[in-house]
Design a protein around this nucleic acid. Sequence first.
DNA 1: CGTAAGTATGACAGATATGTGACATCTGCT
DNA 2: AGCAGATGTCACATATCTGTCATACTTACG
Lengths: 232, 232
Amino acid sequence: MKQQGKKILIVDDEASIREMIAVALEMAGYECLEASNTQDAHSIIVDESPEMVLLDWMLPGTSGLEFARRLKRDDRTAETPIIMLTAKGEEDNKILGLEAGADDYITKPFSPRELVARLKAVLRRSTPAGIEDPITVEGLILDPVCHRVSANNAPLDIGPTEYRLLQFFMTHQERAYSRTQLLDQVWGGNVYVEERTVDVHIRRLRKALGSHHEHLIQTVRGTGYRFSTKAS
Amino acid sequence: MKQQGKKILIVDDEASIREMIAVALEMAGYECLEASNTQDAHSIIVDESPEMVLLDWMLPGTSGLEFARRLKRDDRTAETPIIMLTAKGEEDNKILGLEAGADDYITKPFSPRELVARLKAVLRRSTPAGIEDPITVEGLILDPVCHRVSANNAPLDIGPTEYRLLQFFMTHQERAYSRTQLLDQVWGGNVYVEERTVDVHIRRLRKALGSHHEHLIQTVRGTGYRFSTKAS
DNA sequence: CGTAAGTATGACAGATATGTGACATCTGCT
DNA sequence: AGCAGATGTCACATATCTGTCATACTTACG
């Protein structure tokens, strides 16, 4: 059986651009869906469940930015990765795009190769195979489904970033990671943030874990941090 | 010990711009090299092997684009990452730049922070860390992945320099090294440090290893030290 | 033996790395 | 507009590491 290409939805109001992208993706083995406005896009996403949405920044009516936010708020569509397409000069908005829930952004004009490369990268990151089971370490439970953390049956008050950080650590125990690696893995590759920011979030995470579990987050001096059940 | 800054070559025909960039990078801990034309740039790249080239798009004589292509064709220089500096309005050429082999591009004017951030991102991508396996000797385990040393399953408290020293010894067993060689290998070639300093760190390492394993570090009188399982 | 060169060791002050609290900004919500 | 939660940065406090000395040992050798 021929491998079923993954479905990619292209949302752009210019038909020529949609077509160009569609051709590039189809050559790379993907199946393309197209929408010229957010209404169509929304119903396609709900009906067809594409693996990914390529979303133009500028759209008539609801802007791409706003649409992305909306998608992330809706449970039915929140899991679908989004790559924002921004035109030149709008680049400063990339941060907005990422914070709105986009998983990556790409600036027009772009080469087909670049598009496909990023698309693959995002798909790779966001294909959660079996990451659905809760992880437990010394009474500390992280439940990816409920998106909650609890210690000894008591829910923990933990922020989004701390949650992702903890999830990363709990799924990559024992190994030491540099601040840079953590930024790549937890914050996402294309976010430019000071390395020391990691320290602050480590601190917040430790605080949230409380004296009972903070020892799990170990400092590896001169290198970074590590999640380990063994004493350091 | 201050980390040795990575060398960055700045290629731009305007001295003022080079200077501005150099200041920004040096504040971020990089060492800067400068060239105003592609000829100088080429010899610097070959001679100094900088970790990265910041290449202006517009250059007298050979254009930055052409130069980038040339670098990628030469085995000696093909591995060096390139960030293209393009002026506003030249952005449409981004595709050409990327296809010519540039690893990223940045549009002037840009903030120092943005430059440093992208530079780090590119360096990160292009410096893949090798995977290493743990080394075990008589119950002494050094695990590069966890960045941890343990003796008989008990973690050892060991400082960064001692760690590097031990790692070097465990990957180069049975052979005697002079203090100078150790300084080169463990401290990194171009540091100005007393030879006696090696003695002190050897001492610290032995202490950390404890009576159980300190015999592995042997003194070779008149020469230096050796890591060996055999008695001396 | 005695001496000189080679090493080991403990102490230190300066240099680095990390921990922490505070703050300005931004977003989403009311 | 106003509030509450999150985030990224700073500046300052701590903690830990590093390179050098001065001094005590060891060893080789006349």
